[in-house]
Write a protein that binds this DNA or RNA. Structure first.
Lengths: 347, 347
DNA sequence: TTGTACGCGTTATCAG
DNA sequence: CTGATAACGCGTACAA
């Protein structure tokens, strides 16, 4: 079924049908109705490829996701979901491309094959060659996360250093002197993955500023890793009375390790950090944390991308999210005696 | 950059370039090399729209997912991930379409606009009008899950009734006489969502077969719902000594409710069901459960779809997965005394 | 309102 | 066997 067939059945030319479809020229009410009737009857819709070829745009956005092999975190899933939602809202489709792993071909198809009007990139590293690749192409793109030098690009990101600093200050205000950071996996941090890297920077800075003792550990993105890593932490650093985490998936494991050690939150130990609300609310007691606004981040990424696509006239923009820390009940004043039963921590 | 430009720079005709690209005709080594050099230098790749228009296929698969508003479950996410992975492996891209919600336009674009060569549908209901819609189009499709009457279509599904029955028999063999089913949300079950519907059927049948007392409850897909629903269950049915669940996301909540009631698993209470391995292993003690092979299901869906796309010659096929129940340690013999401290359950 | 050129790659057909 | 020409897939939009 194509536009010619519709035209034939309605007894008009193809262009007239096209104008009815697009409304870019007025068509007499009578013929418009006749054509529309045929269209409705046959449930005709223009061939997307032909339209894309002619118009020079595909009405499709590319979304580059981490390879499926590594299970996506809830936060990443939240980004994907909200990007898809926002795109659908603008009548755009989303083409998925797993990158990393052994799927470079998929990424190349997207970038060079003019399959999409623009690209949203996730899981950005401080030095990211997909970004380099995209910069040298003329394809509009937006990153969720940012590289070490994000000048001249559009991006959205979470202000990890700022949030982590706020968490540390909050703990310091409560009297904690020995605090820990539970970061993402060692591989991610080593690879220069933005949140992991910047969380560490922010933590170190805030700890120094307040004259605290800080210890940071890397931890896989799951409960089992969280439990193992937290057990070790408690054993190796008995003076630590509070933890800041950017690893939401480790929270259930942290919870178990605390319970196993007989530590009651927040009486004996304080926990805070950055996590999607859902994780924070599932913690017992509910976690005092900065809630990551995944839905807004994804929607804003789409919005910035549409801006880029619309025209390279406007300069690139960015949006750094710094959500407030929701005070729930997982932080409290430093315990009088060190949780491990040792001497009270001395300033 | 288009094929004409490449041809011009290489001093040949467009067709020759095309033949070099596709290899569908032999081209003399000299010209082939010259053309390839230009292609490499300019990093040329054919315009996907033009190629799709000419070839009549898009090298793209459509994946219809539940709307983002309702957070995808881990299992759904697993399907999406493995579908994307398998598609990338076959050099195919995946176009996402959130359906349900208010996104019918997205679904219609996919189906009618010839944007994809085939469609994979998730979250199938017993009566599903997207399936009806797809059946009457000539677009190849495969469902993950199946309708009440799946004759003549290709599908993959998990054998919920069979798995649930096995779980119930396992519990009955251990002496349990009063068992419960924790199903998916009331809305899903009411809407005829396959797994919810069939789990209930299978449960009822197995309970009847073994002469047990069964109670089933619906439960939202999250920890909080699981906790609330399980508290109620324990209060309302104190004689229940074991539970079968198809709601993996409720497991952490079930765990908490059990702990709050002072019940030790498996000494006082047995827990089993169907869940992704990841949920089962995070349960304490590790859950005796049928592990959903999400990765295989997704890959098989792609494989069946490619078969359909290749030609309507072969009859539709399906694959019903019935993974074995991994015996971990969350089930045990029925306790001597009812967990609530009442009289021992009498046969 | 209609005729037609165009966007771009593919391939059947023709010439050498 | 090698290379070139031209028609085609389908929708859009300018010129008539």
């Amino acid at each position: 079924m194509n536009i010619g067939e519709i035209a034939r059945r309605a007894g008009v030319s193809r262009s007239t049908v096209s104008y009815v479809l697009s409304g870019k020229r007025t068509v007499s009410e009578a013929t418009r109705r006749r054509i529309q009737a045929v269209i409705d009857e046959l449930d005709y819709r223009p061939n997307a490829s032909a339209r894309a070829l002619k118009e020079g745009r595909t009405r499709t956005l590319g979304l580059v996701i981490p390879p499926a092999s590594q299970r996506l975190t809830d936060m990443q899933l939240g980004f994907v979901a909200s990007v898809v939602e926002a795109a659908a809202h603008a009548d755009l489709d989303v083409l998925l491309s797993p990158s990393g792993g052994d799927h470079e071909r998929s990424f190349e198809r997207i970038v060079t094959g003019r399959r999409v009007d623009g690209v949203i990139l996730m899981e950005i590293r401080m030095e990211d060659d997909r970004v380099t690749r995209l910069r040298q192409s003329r394809l509009p793109f937006v990153t969720i996360g940012r590289t070490a030098d994000p000048e001249g690009m559009s991006w959205v990101d979470i202000d990890y250093p700022g949030l982590i600093a706020r968490c540390v200050h909050h703990l310091a205000d409560l009297g904690h002197r020995h605090v820990a950071l539970v970061n993402r996996s060692a591989e991610l941090v080593a690879a220069g993955y933005g949140p992991g890297h910047r969380a560490l920077i922010g933590f170190a800075a805030a700890v120094a500023e307040r004259g605290l003792t800080g210890v940071d550990v890397c931890c896989g993105d799951d409960a089992a890793a969280g439990e193992a890593c937290f057990e070790q932490l408690l054993a190796a650093h008995p003076r630590v009375t509070a933890v800041v985490t950017v690893n939401e998936a480790a929270l259930p494991g942290i919870q178990r390790a605390l319970a196993a050690a007989g530590l009651v939150v927040p009486r004996d130990f304080s926990v805070t950090g950055v996590a999607a609300r859902h994780w924070a609310e599932d913690f017992r007691p509910p976690l005092t944390a900065a809630d990551v606004p995944a839905a807004e981040v994804g929607a804003e990424a789409v919005s910035l991308l549409l801006e880029r696509i619309a025209g390279p006239v406007m300069p690139p923009r960015h949006h750094l999210y710094s959500p407030p820390i929701s005070l729930r009940s997982s932080t409290g004043p430093v315990p009088q005696r060190s949780p491990a039963g040792g001497p009270p921590p001395t300033g």
